[in-house]
Amino acid sequence: MPSIETTALTKRYGSTTAVDQLDFSVPDGTVYGFLGPNGAGKTTTMRILTGLTTPTSGSATVAGVPVTNRDSLRPHIGYLPEEPPLYEQATAYEQLEYVAGLRDLPSRETQNRIDELLDRLDLSPDDAATRIAEYSKGMRQKVAYVQAVLHDPDVAFLDEPTSGLDPRAARTIRELIGELSDEGTTVFLSTHILPVVEEVADTVGILYDGKLVAEDTPDQLTQRAETGETRTLEDAFLELTSTDPAQDDTEETYG
């Protein structure tokens, strides 16, 4: 059974169509790289799939639960939005324990998991006991990541998880994403950093103007259908999301 499944998913804001007839499915325990230029509709799609906004038409299920059933959906998902949702006046420990409490996680195990994850991300106990208002962008990102996966969700939605991180921390996050997937969590990953997607994603979907213009494995996407020669994922992305009318041809090739 797919972890995420959408059928003709559409979201309109007035006369603007942000997400247009989206059909895709993500198998359990895989990493789905969700790419697209700015304004393509990635964040809107993620907000629909996390139940934060309702679709105008079509349907979607996450972990077998319709996204419109928010109360049943919540225990299954973890969400790291592009802007880390943190409280400036709290410390990392306070914030994470607070969120764990809201999810009814057992305190001893949670404490261990928080310590382990913070340690993996090079956040010292002193850092974790400091107010978030004093954190750098990278430190905020790390705490927000821990917050999103703390409860071992069935599906983790990660929007630019490596944004603002130094190379070492970014690598750790990539490793953690791999481990999440190995442990059975489905990861829905949106990022502009294409090497990250190339490294960790099992499947890549490219969204352009609200439509899914390509979906395949990274290897297949970087392979030219006509000639068989390889190119980078960046080349493929640029071709597929070009405003050039020739894109219609590429859509047929990869769609």
Binding site: R47, T50, G51, L52, Y79, P85, L86, V99, L102
Partner: peptide
Amino acid sequence: AESLILTT
């Protein structure tokens, strides 16, 4: 922190 709280 709306996205956090409403998904929690």
